[in-house]
């Protein structure tokens, strides 16, 4: 069971995979033949009986197709959240609260210092910077699946109609979103640009920020759209001049809100900074434990 299509969750080489139709489609697009020999799609809300356990996938609000896995057995309900967020995202279905007995939560931003700004606030910051530095290319690092398309949609909603320039690696996923009915406006490839793109927005993978590829731009102003940008040192370590706190993960208030709302008697915490959320659960009088997943301590978002 795959909660969503990001590469740290949707690994290559599985024998059988089950996920939402969007997740299966994303896996096929990214992994080709390695996306699983047997594939089974389960739409949001449909129920699948596996032995004595019934399985339902419900939206997690993380990216297109992302799902929580709801397992019911003998009157008890367990929910594995996968990655999730609570605020509205125009590119995916919103998180649904499922009352449960056991809730397995992510903890990417599980520290009280992580409080994401509103999308509108951050988009305004970007647009304001474009006005102030109209001669500089605004090169923004974004994750290619989800964040990229969300940022484009937010810009369009804010009235930004100019072409948005893409690194080649972002193209196929944007095409996929378009094919699913998302309107992303005019997108162009950086490789087809005829000038240094002054005053334009360029979206690229975070790894391309500040590397040789960036030298083609007009005095590039480096931005990065990520929840980590809340911490100044994280921005500075990457040479980021324009930090945009836009995240596809729940921030601290959202994590705490969710834990309270699902009403589970027991919380398992994985994927990030478990210590703080563990403490918070104790303060709330909830039984909680940290699941240490080997190799999952890397802090990629």
């Amino acid at each position: 069971m795959i909660t969503h299509g990001h590469s740290d969750h949707a690994h290559a080489g599985h024998e059988s995979v089950l996920g939402t139709p969007e997740t299966i489609a994303i896996m096929n697009l990214r992994l080709g033949a390695a996306a699983g020999k047997v594939q089974q799609a389960l739409a949001y809300g449909e129920t699948l009986q596996m032995g004595e356990v019934s399985i339902t996938l419900v939206p997690a609000g993380h990216i297109l197709g992302s799902a929580q896995v709801v397992m019911r057995h003998a009157g008890k309900t367990a929910v594995v959240s996968g990655d999730y967020k609570r605020r509205a995202d125009p590119t995916c279905a919103p998180f649904e609260v499922v009352a449960c007995d056991l809730f397995v939560t992510e903890a990417t931003f599980a520290l009280p210092v992580f409080r994401h700004e509103t999308d509108a606030h951050e988009i305004n910051k970007l647009l304001h910077s474009l006005e102030l530095f109209s001669h500089r290319t605004h090169q923004i690092g974004v994750y290619g699946l989800g964040k990229c398309q969300r940022l484009i949609t937010l810009l369009r909603q804010a009235g930004y109609t100019a072409p948005i320039w893409l690194h080649g690696a972002m193209k196929s996923m944007c095409d996929f979103y378009e094919s699913r009915g998302f309107k992303l406006g005019t997108l162009k490839l950086v490789s087809e640009a005829t000038d240094k793109l002054p005053g334009q927005i360029v979206l690229c993978p975070p790894a391309s920020l500040g590397d040789r590829w960036s030298r083609r731009f007009a005095d590039p102003l480096i931005g990065f759209a990520s929840g980590w940008m809340r911490i100044r040192a994280r921005a500075r370590q990457r040479g980021v001049e324009l930090p945009l706190i836009i995240s596809d993960h729940a921030d601290w208030p959202e994590l705490v809100q969710t834990i309270k709302e699902v009403g589970a008697g027991e919380i398992w915490i994985t994927h990030g900074r478990e210590d703080a959320l563990l403490l918070k659960c104790e303060e709330l009088g909830l039984k909680a434990r940290a699941l240490a997943l080997v190799g999952f301590e890397e802090e990629g978002e």
């Binding site: 520290l111 210092v113 911490i231 040192a233 900074r273």
Partner: peptide, 17 residues
């Protein structure tokens, strides 16, 4: 609470921030 603050401080690396 103090323990939550300490974890935060340790992560951010700057008390004022």
């Amino acid at each position: 609470s103090e323990p939550l603050y300490r974890l935060s401080r340790d992560y951010v690396g700057d008390s004022a921030e």
